[in-house]
Amino acid sequence: MPPQAQQFLDQLNATLPLEAYLIVGALMFGIGVWGALVRRNAVVVFMCIELMINAVNLTLVAFADYLPNAGGAGVGYAVLVIAVAAAEVAVGLAIALAVYRSRKTVNVDEINLMKG
């Protein structure tokens, strides 16, 4: 096997630095922010917020695995975060339903009874 190819395979097998995960998390968070800002449909906005929370969770688990003295406690925190997010979704969809019943729309820019 030529040495370059071996080197390439080694690189592929090498452990990744922490930044890699953090940056993926950051980009995912950014996409979530984007969606939450531009989409009209409240349910899609929920989804985007879920993306944000998942991005944070990814960051958290990456820290849990990489930080030397934390003992992986971050994974436990991640479980808590998943539970909180689930609770938010439950209440969120219930409220979306209530809004839909009164207004027949869940588009956030049409929900505008109150001004000023």
Partner: peptide, 22 residues
């Protein structure tokens, strides 16, 4: 937001970390 966050992540010195603590 995405670019700034990613940039800040890369700026930090993470040399002391290593995987496998999960």
């Amino acid at each position: 937001v995405g670019a700034f966050l990613a940039y800040m992540m890369g700026l930090q010195n993470w040399d002391y970390t290593e995987p496998g603590n999960g």
